[in-house]
Every structure is written in structure tokens, then in C-alpha cells.
Design a protein around this nucleic acid. Structure first.
Lengths: 198, 198
DNA sequence: CGCAGGCTTGAGTCCATTCAAGTACAGTGG
DNA sequence: CCACTGTACTTGAATGGACTCAAGCCTGCG
């Protein structure tokens, strides 16, 4: 992309940006998935966003990140110096409005997640999550989960045991199958949607 | 402000925009508070945002609102036709970047709320909320709550009984006082912060 | 083949919810 | 001025869903 961009890679669990720490660059994710994490002093943590390639990572308004960004599985990305992208944003309204669109989309997802976290049961949260991954995977009956059970728990505001139990229950009742632990096969989409509770 | 803007007012509980419904205008909030609500089919609802005057209300990317917007107490605002504001945005990069800043701020708040909803206890959520209102009110020891217990519950992902119990507990232990139900007096800020758990 | 990390399952506990009274308070009309 | 009414709020008792703690099981990999 940019002349000064630097190609990088990271493996699962590596930190790309640290909460409240300054960073001189953005990152353009070219392949893989990253999670955005917020942590309480005592270690409890919540995944407040997932980003899939291709996308831009980094706080558009300040050099300090407001979340920790970690790779989920292997990740390829390019570092882009702040000054460079900021200069382009200033002179290119089309880029700015594209970024605005992405931002609005993230806000919308964040608010849906707030509804989930605040008002849905464990069953509904897990089912909604499967449904979203199903849609992200082109509505194919079988798809791959990027996240471990622990990450799902941190994303859904549950414990990993609860996530596991809910997945088992969905499997037991014939709604989905798990050919390979991280692979999901949707057997009864209507019932999965019903379980997600909208 | 704009030549074509129309001054309006609404009372507590009135709906300014309806979820998934098209609207030909934005609203510029000149006084009062509004809540952004998402609702599940069975009626459970979650407040996914609060907006305080002065601010702009409305979906910047599409004419359909993604949330229901309701007045919290009496509210004064101006309707601004979509085309008008959109035209200004296109020709005025400074306005656009101001809006971008507001949006980033909302996203940040949404993510903090996700951490609250997903990982904090009832006590911590209620204490954090009081703390945020305390800060919004200029860190004055006593301040007014804009929300009813029911609204607080919908914002914090709790029931109104739980909110009430937590407030009573904070009062009983001498952390805060409630001279007039909606009025809060912070008696021990350090302990309130401790109860908020960061 | 054995280890380690990820996952499942079980038993018991606890925090928030539900259901149910009962209290405070503002507004209204007699 | 005071009873009346409705809304907001508080408090109690019992329930239940998700959590904690604790084994044990897969499975990929060295």
C-alpha cells in the first residue's frame, strides 16, 4: 500500500497494540482475525470487538489505543505510520468517509452486543454468536469458528464452562453438529434462529 | 442554526426516532437527555446509549435508525432535513471530522459499557454509573440523576429491584446519600471508586 | 506413545431474578 | 387543606441460571 508501510506477521495470542499505550502507527490487517480486549484490574476481561481482514486497526482520534489488540490465530498486517495515514485522511475526503462508514458499522455491532450482554440468556448469546459466524461465513451450512471456547466466553460475557454446556445442549438437541470442535455444521437453521431470540 | 431547521419539543417518554424506521431528518438536541434503546421481540430492552445536549442525533450512514430514541425528561431539539446536513458534511471537512470525533467517543463509551455488562457485578455496575454521572456533573459532590430506577436497570442490564437494592446498600454503608430520590450526594468518593472496580 | 492445551461434564453454591407486599411522593379534585 | 390516585421506589422471600471448583476426556503434536 503505502511506500513507508512495513509488512509484519503475528501468531495467535500476540499483542499488536496495548491498552492505554501510545503507538506511532496504525495497522492494516491483510489476513487473519484480531480481538479487541478490555481488562479490569483484577484480570477479568471482555472482548469488545472482533476485526476480520481486510481492515484498519488503530485509534483514529488519538495515538493511545483504548483497547488491547491481540491476534486470533496467525495474522499478517502492515504497519502504517500515523503521520502518513493522517495526512492522507486530511487530503482525501473519500478515504475519510469510508473510515466513517466502518466506524458506524462497528458502533452498530457494539450496540447489538450490548443488547446481548445486558439482556440475553447464555443460550441466546451462544446461538446468536453461531448465527453471526454463520452469516459471516457466507451462510454456508458448515463453517469454521475462529475463536476458542475461552475467547467465546470472553466475547459473550460468560465462562468457558457455560459456553461449552450451551454448545453441547445445541448439539444434543440436534440444532448443530461439531465435526471437528472448531467446525460447525448447522443442522436446523430455523431452530438456531429461534434459540438466538432475535 | 440552519434556515430549514424546525424547533420542536418532547416530554419524557416521547419517541423521537423509531428503530428500523426511515426518517427524513436528523435532530439537533438543544436541551435535555435522550436514551437510545434496543428491544428484543419479547419486550426485553437495553439502553445502548445516552445522549446529552448539545449533540446531533440520527444515523449518519443511512436514513433508517438502528435504535429507538426516546426523551428522558423534557427535551428541546431542532429537526434538520437529511439533505441539508448531508450537503454541509460534504462541503465542510471540519464538520465531518467533528462528527467523526463524536462517533469515536460514542464507540469508546459503548465498549466500556460492554465491559460493564459482560464482566462487572451489579454492585460494580451501579457504582460505576453513579461515578460517571458524578463526573458528568462536574465532579460536584451532589448531582441529579436523569434516569429513573427502571431506566438505570435497562442501562445497566439489571432489574429495577437489583438497582434499588444496590443503591440502598451504598447508602446503608455511608458511601452516598439520597436527599431527594433522584439527587445523589457523594459522601465517600474513594469508596465509591473502589466499589466501581475501575 | 505421552504430554499439554483445549474442551466437556458434574456437583454444589451464590448472585441476581422473580414474585409479592408495602412505602413515599407528586399531582388532582373535592 | 386533605383525601385519592397513580407512579416510582423499597424491601422481603424464594427460585433459578450461571458460576466455581473439580475431574476427566479428547486431540494434535513432538
Amino acid at each position: 500500500m503505502a511506500a513507508t508501510a512495513r509488512a509484519m506477521q503475528a501468531s495467535s495470542g500476540d499483542t499488536l497494540f496495548d491498552e492505554a499505550e501510545e503507538s506511532g502507527s496504525y495497522a492494516s490487517l491483510s489476513s487473519g482475525v484480531v480481538k479487541l480486549i478490555k481488562t479490569l484490574e483484577d484480570g477479568r476481561q471482555q472482548i469488545v470487538g472482533l476485526q476480520f481482514a481486510p481492515c484498519l486497526i488503530g485509534n483514529l482520534s488519538a495515538p493511545e489505543a483504548s483497547v488491547t489488540v491481540e491476534a486470533v490465530g496467525p495474522v499478517f498486517y502492515c504497519k502504517i505510520p500515523r503521520e502518513e495515514l493522517d495526512a492522507r485522511r486530511a487530503e482525501n475526503p473519500q478515504l475519510e468517509s469510508h473510515l466513517m462508514g466502518e466506524l458506524l458499522n462497528e458502533l452498530e455491532i457494539a450496540r447489538d452486543t450490548m443488547l446481548s450482554l445486558g439482556r440475553k440468556t447464555a443460550r441466546e448469546r451462544v446461538a446468536s454468536f453461531l448465527l453471526r459466524m454463520h452469516e459471516a461465513g457466507g451462510r454456508n451450512a458448515s463453517f469454521e469458528l475462529a475463536l476458542t471456547r475461552t475467547d467465546m466466553a470472553d466475547y459473550l460475557g460468560l465462562t468457558l464452562e457455560t459456553v461449552s454446556r450451551q454448545l453441547s445442549a445445541l448439539k444434543r438437541t440436534g440444532v448443530v453438529e461439531f465435526p471437528h470442535l472448531r467446525e460447525v455444521y448447522v443442522r436446523d437453521l430455523a431452530r438456531l434462529e429461534a434459540a438466538a431470540g432475535s
